[in-house]
Write a protein that binds this DNA or RNA. Structure first.
Length: 518
RNA sequence: GGCCCCAUCGUCUAGCGGUCUAGGACUCCGGCCUUUCACGCCGGCAACACGGGUUCGAGUCCCGUUGGGGUCACCA
């Protein structure tokens, strides 16, 4: 039985790199008909875990990455919080102590630092002298009488190599002599991550540990712990990390300012910021950041699109397939086809993927996605009046591919504001409405518009074409002025769709108003 | 610095010794479509880091160099 896990620390946000790791774990489990477990690594947490965990769980729920065991769903191995598993860790520490795979160490931080410095001064690798290692009860008593307190350290081998097969990297080898006697239990009795992780993976019967490359060098000590405990170590697969936009370092939430200097990343961020601002939302870098998954949800990306983008970051099926539904991802995913080298986060490709998904989204779903944004922006009442559905549906049809994320609907506010509060883009107004011939043409065409029957796209188009011909002018001489008069903007959805959606009354009122202002 | 990992167009990637005059996608640049914008369509630019081997033959295997990265905690 394949059982994989993702083990987030409750940090209050879900990082895109973390999601990619979780996604690969999830896909691997689902592909093999196995289970995906969520375990909470909160051994070092003083703050409110529940509060800091919620955004992470929400993120996974939004993405549709479901877990078979873990917070909120529980399971046969509950609890899934490391902070609640101290007794298991304690038992493991005791067993390690008994078998001699670990020892109590009474050195002080200063003494240890002195040894480290000495090693550095002599330009040799630091190897702890084990001078304050207590092997007997008498040793311990003596050290304690000196007022010392103990940590528990691993008694790592100092000869030979730790060799294992990584499912992505192939055979990997580490010399035991380079390993330190890592601390597994602190002075205060709490245990450290490596011990906890190994114990949990065994207790939860994790078969495959798929995690970021940064853990590769942690693997020897974890295998040592497992072996010393008489446990069969899981299979390991170390994923390359997700690199920052335009760079080669690991992408990090804290480097937003740096990433903003990257044009594509900046575009992605600004686009999102405009939407968030239109929603009246406070934009602060701690939560509103394209490195954090929430960003995409708030701005109106499709979870499927994000996932599709992410799955291709370090994995591919073949030389051409780019689109994967969840089912297809699950069907085709394999660790053999995961790349060894880091993959850079590319905002443009993400947006292109999103755009494709949005195009393919059925109209009904698009409407359902977009309406909440209009409500949050105060442009549509909650609950929405019954004419909203058909109107938005018609508008989306007219807007076609212009709506790339749900929040883009907020760039079409002209369809939702009252005629008298429509804002005119000053530059556009100056250029197209205040120019010499515009006003008389608008006035003349307004009279035609007042008569058209029915007032729909086809008829208004016919009407305008006839008007243009009778006046002996070109389309361009009036249509731009008309657009600005009616929408306030120089760009937007098709002219005649716009007229139809706005309706005769609004169109006439807006033309009148524009002529007055001109 | 020690140890470990990695290396194909700007980016994501295909390539598992000959079918590679290196394929696809995103971006970019032309052109078409067009009332604007977006879409769409057509076309184009663009890569095997370098040096040695092995081999009849190397992007593909080996070694080295260079470059990039990860990691060296009583963090996870």
């Amino acid at each position: 039985m394949v059982r994989t896990r993702f083990a987030p620390s409750p940090t209050g946000y879900l990082h895109v790199g973390g999601v990619r790791t979780a996604l690969f774990n999830w896909l691997y489990a689902r592909h093999h008909g196995g289970q995906f477990i969520l375990r909470i690594d909160d051994t070092d947490q003083q703050r409110n875990v529940a509060e800091a965990l919620q955004p992470i769980l929400d993120g996974f729920r939004w993405l549709g990455i479901d877990w078979d065991e873990g917070p909120e769903v529980d399971g046969p191995h509950t609890p899934y919080y490391q902070s609640q598993r101290a007794s298991q860790y304690q038992a493991a520490v005791e067993r390690l102590l008994e078998t001699g795979a670990a020892y109590r160490d009474y050195s002080t931080p200063d003494e240890l630092a002195a040894e480290r410095d000495a090693a550095a001064a002599e330009k040799r690798d630091f190897v702890y002298s084990r001078k304050w290692m207590a092997t007997t009860a008498e040793d311990a008593a003596r050290f304690e009488s000196e007022g010392r307190t103990a940590v528990v350290r691993l008694k790592m081998p100092r000869e030979g190599t730790c060799a294992f097969r990584d499912l992505i990297r192939g055979d990997v080898e580490f010399a035991w002599s380079r390993e330190q006697d890592h601390v597994i239990q602190r002075t205060d009795g709490t245990c450290l991550y490596h011990l906890a992780s190994v114990v949990d993976d065994a207790d939860f019967q994790i078969s495959h540990v798929i995690r970021a490359e940064e853990h590769l060098s942690n693997t020897p000590r974890q295998r040592f712990i497992a072996q010393s405990l008489g446990l069969e170590p899981p299979h390991f697969a170390h994923l390359p990390y997700v690199a920052e936009p335009g760079g080669s370092q690991k992408i990090s939430k804290r480097k937003l300012t740096k990433y903003l200097k990257n044009r594509d990343f900046n575009d992605l961020f600004q686009h999102g910021t405009a939407i968030a601002t239109a929603l009246g939302r406070q934009v602060n870098a701690d939560t509103f950041n394209p490195v954090i998954v929430d960003f995409y949800r708030e701005v109106g990306y499709l979870a499927d699109a994000l996932l599709n983008y992410l799955v291709l970051l370090g994995w591919s099926l073949d030389d051409k397939t780019e689109e994967f539904s969840r089912a297809e991802m699950i069907q085709h995913f394999s660790l053999e086809r995961v790349n060894k080298s880091p993959a850079g986060f590319d905002p443009q490709k993400l947006r292109a993927t999103q755009a494709r998904y949005m195009q393919a989204l059925p109209s009904k779903q698009k409407v359902a996605m977009v309406v909440p944004f209009l409500q949050q922006a105060g442009l549509v009442a909650s609950p929405p009046p019954c004419e909203t559905g058909p109107m938005v549906s018609r508008l989306l049809e007219a807007a076609d591919d212009r709506i790339k994320v749900a929040g883009d609907i907020l760039s079409l506010t002209e369809f939702f504001v009252a005629d008298e509060s429509l804002e005119y883009d000053e530059k556009a107004f100056e250029k197209r409405v205040r120019k010499p011939d515009a006003k008389p043409l608008l006035v003349a065409f307004r009279a035609e518009l007042a008569q058209v029957e029915p007032f729909d796209a086809a008829s208004t188009e016919q009407c305008l074409r006839a008007f243009v011909e009778s006046q002996g002018i070109k389309m361009g001489q009036i249509i731009h002025a008309l657009r600005v008069a009616v929408t306030g903007k120089a760009v937007g959805v098709g002219m005649f769709d716009t007229l139809e959606i706005l309706g005769r009354e609004s169109c006439l009122a807006r033309i009148d108003r524009a002529c007055r202002l001109a």
